[in-house]
Amino acid sequence: MERPGGLIRWHKQPLTRTTRAGSCAQTAQTRQTPQTPQTAQTAQTARPHKPEALLLFTSVDDVATRLAETGYLASTAVATTVFLADRLGKPLLVEGPAGVGKTELAKAVAEVADARLVRLQCYEGVDESRALYEWNHAKQLLRITAGRDESWDETRTDIFSEEFLLPRPLLTAIRGSDPKVLLIDETDKADVEVEGLLLEVLSDFQVTVPELGTITAETRPFTVLTSNASRELSEALRRRCLFLHIGFPDEELERRIVRLKVPGLDEELARSVVRVVGALRAMDLRKAPSVAETIDWARTLLALGAGSLDENVVRDSLGVVLKHQEDVLKAAAKLDLDAV
């Protein structure tokens, strides 16, 4: 049984060098045909290995306005950092509490750039074959059985062509020339080994498939990594990224977000909701309510038909904002909810 993975792959490499080089050149040629003359030119400049960044935005204000059009209201920090990530062509590492819109940011950028969103959801045990690429073993077997009369060399070069390659998110984001946004979600959930894999991909935006050669991105995808900080990411990975911490928005921004996401809500009620949530956040709770909870609460109040906040409404709906019983009790005590 031929196993393409593991050690055998490396033994075979010198044997197939000529054929590999041939097929590689071929694929490179076919890939270059749809290219615009401009990108072909940039490929010849001083750093041929560094693919060009997309350059989606012209200024920080441009970022803010265009993100706002998609329904993502960005703070100064977010707008500035997104602009820099685009300009410097560096991946963006976004940290922050759950529910402040880390994943939403990547989606919004993809929408603005009219780019395809490629998402790699990390979890414990995600590995190379889930993140990068995998050979389609079943199809390779079929191909071998179909071509019984062929010589070994013919079959061997054939079954390691792109047709039998199953690209996973990282490879997908690198191949092709259409603009892409690569979202690596919850990076902290993945094992440390995956970080090593990401290092290669994120610093040079290239992937080496031993049988095919090195595949380099033509257009650098706009890359967003998110993390909930359940594990400290390695210093090496952090160094390669621009760091952005999305915290809880200030009162004015949050009010705008609530008004945007819950259009039916009365201005005065939105103000009250945001103020109460702000007070809850200052309370040192186990899980401070984030923007998602604020919006949920605003929707709940709208559904309940509450015209304004009062003791009963707050007490009955506090469970929407706070997710731990002890937090609810503490908040109720601090807000004097029982002093009716």
């Binding site: 990530a85 621009l242 760091f243 915290g247």
Partner: peptide
């Protein structure tokens, strides 16, 4: 270079993004 020196808050956020590794 990309941000210019006009807006101080943007410079602050930009430098923080490039230099810092944690909140």
């Amino acid at each position: 270079e990309a941000l210019g020196l006009d807006d101080r808050e943007r410079i602050r956020e930009g430098l923080a993004a490039a230099l810092l590794h944690g909140e």
